[in-house]
């Protein structure tokens, strides 16, 4: 029996070794598995973002320069998107959430494009893990209910039966598919980008992969933008009548 279990573990290890992307799955408790690579990269992104924003805003000046300018560019970029859909009221209420969401996905997506210099240490995007993508899309989807009830009270649920109660199944389906598609789109794009990059490095180690890196950097921005834009749209029904 013991041999069989050991063989199963060995087989799983071998299976994992063949995979291109390693998540470093740790069983921290029986039945509780954590992808340590994803966690580590997420923490790096978080620390990076916190440092960037803290340094940018610590000596915030009326005439911005350097880092403050860069961060304000991103904040204003998201401000434009949010006020366009949710109005100034929505921006004041939950604008910072979308700034954090966009910056987190953007930095996460680009992190996996960093060159792997140290042997045994790989830069990967936290968003190449389906768990991260679902965590984000579910946070957004569930957040809609919290913000909606906090803003409009129980009247928020009226949108499920508008324009008529016959639309209830469609609305429910929409509520389920939206986080699913958002997560899978982000996950698929980033994971595919990283896998293709690894394969390209194996096929043609010089120059060729760099073109894909450039394109992936662009895709990283694009996916962060799409995810943020769709998130903002899902909050639109809260502020639509205001």
């Amino acid at each position: 029996m013991g041999n069989e279990a050991a063989a199963a573990v060995a087989a799983a290890e071998a299976e994992r070794a063949k995979e291109l992307i390693h998540y470093l799955a740790w069983d921290v408790a029986p039945g509780v598995t954590i992808h340590m690579q994803t966690m580590l990269m997420t923490w790096i992104v978080m620390i990076l973002l916190i440092l960037l924003f803290v340094f940018a805003s610590r000596n915030a000046k009326l005439i911005p320069s350097g880092l403050q300018n860069v961060m304000e560019f991103f904040v204003e970029f998201i401000e434009g998107l949010v006020t366009g859909s949710l109005g100034v009221k929505g921006w004041k209420a939950i604008g910072s959430f979308f700034v954090s969401l966009f910056m987190f996905i953007l930095v996460s997506n680009e992190l996996g494009m960093l060159p792997n210099v140290v042997h045994g240490f790989h830069w990967t995007s936290p968003t190449n893990d389906i768990n991260t993508c679902f965590a984000l899309s579910l946070t957004v989807a569930i957040g809609v209910y919290f913000v909606g009830v906090a803003t409009n009270g129980m009247g928020f649920f009226k949108h499920f039966i508008s324009p008529s109660p016959a639309f209830l199944p469609l609305h429910l389906l929409d509520e389920l598919t939206k986080p699913l598609t958002m997560a899978l789109r982000l996950f698929g794009n980033i994971l595919a980008g990283e896998i293709l990059l690894i394969i390209l490095y194996q096929l043609a180690p010089w120059i060729v992969p760099e073109f894909w890196v450039m394109f992936s950097l662009f895709i990283g921005f694009l996916q962060a933008f799409i995810f943020t834009m769709l998130s903002i749209c899902s909050y639109e029904k809260i502020y639509a009548h205001h």
Partner: peptide
């Protein structure tokens, strides 16, 4: 593999 990482990532975010 959807596992506890999802919860951890949501908390992180």
């Amino acid at each position: 593999n959807i596992n506890a990482t999802l919860i951890a990532q949501a908390i992180n975010f």
